[in-house]
Every structure is written in structure tokens, then in C-alpha cells.
Simulated scan of single mutants.
Amino acid sequence: MNSVWTLPYWETAFRLFMAAVLGGLIGWERERDAHPAGFRTHILVCLGSALIMLISIYGFSDFIKEENVRADPARLAAQVVSGIGFLGAGTILRHGLTVSGLTTAASLWVVAGIGLAVGAGYMFGAVLTTILALVSLELLNRMERLVVGRRRLAKIVVTVKDEPGKLGELASVLREIGAGIRKVTIDEEDPGDGRIKISFTIRLSEEISTTRIVEEVRRVKGVKGVRTG
């Protein structure tokens, strides 16, 4: 079995180069849309994963010859899979009830897997996974925008008395009208007056007007004001 000292340099260089390229392709898609983890981060994750896999497979081959020594090439790889969660968690941002960065965290996890596959020499799986990841990130994103584009997006800002269950009540009213809620944020206007400001980003069909939305929301008990953003 080859070791890190006997593995041809061109083989090591090729695998690390492929890891940088494949990770960079996914990172480029994230970078273009200004997501938390972009081009460089994805390259580093994929490159580091590939190197760790190379070390895991070939770095300890000399010790296998010793008696009572068991080698497990998957041990270091398993640490990458679990450890990447800490990096992915850093890309997830929470503002009120809005959570963003989940897709970027998932892409980092996939890139780590691609790096491990490249390090193990499983090029077909690494390349195919990269292609499928790019399709899901790019093509499906365009399809979603195309579908959403057929409907109008509107923003409704509601000032309401801070009471338990009020958010759910407003959300129920919007759903009954036929408005799809895309995003919700909550801000406290003044801690002393007991009011909060809830911003709804909603998706409307051509049959529903924002005027009707405002009128229906105003009828909810506790609502102090409604405006379109």
C-alpha cells in the first residue's frame, strides 16, 4: 500500500487541484449572490477535506505493519463530517423570526463531502455531486424565481398590541385571504407602549389586491396600524 512518501506527487497534486476546482465552482455560485460563505471559503473547505482524506488513507500506512495496530481510514473523515457543522452554523443568521444561510451551510457540508471523495480518489462521485449541487443551487433557483415571478410580492407592516398569539392570528388572516407568507420579521417599537411592528413579505396572485389585504388586517383586534412597505 502506498504511503504519503511513496504516493506520486502528480497524483497528490491532481487530487488537491480537483478539490480546489470543484469546491470553487460551488463557492462561485454562493459568492455571486453575496452569501455568507463564498468562493474562498468553499475552496478551503474542499481542499482541507481532500488533504485530510489523503492523510487518513496514506499517512499512517507505515504503522499498519506494526503488530497489534488497526487502521481505520474513515476515522479522520468522520471528524470532518461532524466538524463542518461548526463552520456551517456560523453562516446561519437569525433576525427575529427570519433565518437565512441554511442553503450556504448545506453547500459547505456538501463541499466537505466532495473534498473527501476527491481525496479518496473517487473522482466520478465528486464530479457528479458537484454537477448536481450546481444544478440544485443555480437551475432550481432560477425556476423558483420564474414561478414566484408570476406572482406579486408585497410587504405589509402591521403595528399591533403585543399579546400572545397575535402573530399566529395575523398569519391565519393572510392565509385565509390567499396570501402566501414568504418572510416575517418582528421589531419592538417602544418597550414602554406594549406595541410591536410585524413585517410580512407576502406573495399575491393577480386576483388579490393589497388594498383588500390592508382592510382585512385592520379588522384584527389589537391592530393599531397597517401600511404597505
Rank of each mutant, 00 (worst) to 15 (best):
N2C: 01
S3D: 05
S3F: 01
V4F: 11
T6M: 05
T6K: 10
P8G: 10
A13L: 14
M18A: 15
A19K: 08
L25M: 15
I26P: 11
G27I: 13
E29A: 09
D33G: 06
D33K: 15
D33C: 04
H35W: 01
A37Q: 02
T41K: 07
H42C: 05
I43L: 05
L44N: 10
L44G: 06
C46P: 00
G48I: 10
L51D: 01
I52C: 08
I57D: 08
S61A: 14
E66D: 06
E66F: 10
E67G: 00
N68G: 05
N68C: 03
N68I: 00
V69A: 04
A71F: 14
A74H: 03
Q79R: 09
G85C: 12
T91K: 01
T91P: 02
H95N: 13
H95K: 03
T103H: 03
A105E: 04
A106R: 04
A106G: 12
S107R: 00
L108P: 07
L108V: 06
W109F: 13
V110H: 08
V111S: 15
V111F: 03
G113L: 12
V118G: 06
G119S: 10
A120Y: 10
Y122G: 01
Y122V: 03
M123A: 08
G125D: 01
T129S: 15
T130G: 03
T130K: 12
T130P: 02
A133G: 13
L134C: 13
V135M: 11
L139I: 13
L140T: 11
L140E: 05
L140G: 05
N141H: 12
N141E: 04
R142I: 04
M143G: 07
E144Y: 02
R145C: 00
L146Y: 14
L153D: 10
A154D: 09
K155D: 06
K155S: 14
V157H: 06
V158S: 01
D162C: 12
L167K: 07
A171W: 09
S172Q: 10
L174A: 11
R175D: 13
R175F: 04
A179L: 09
R182Y: 00
V184N: 08
T185N: 10
I186V: 15
D187R: 15
E189K: 14
P191C: 02
G192T: 14
D193W: 07
D193C: 10
G194L: 03
R195W: 06
I196N: 04
K197Q: 14
T201H: 10
T201M: 13
T201P: 02
R203M: 15
E207L: 07
S209P: 00
R212I: 08
V214T: 11
E216Y: 07
R219W: 04
V220G: 09
K221F: 11
K221Q: 13
V223N: 05
K224A: 13
G225C: 04
G229V: 06
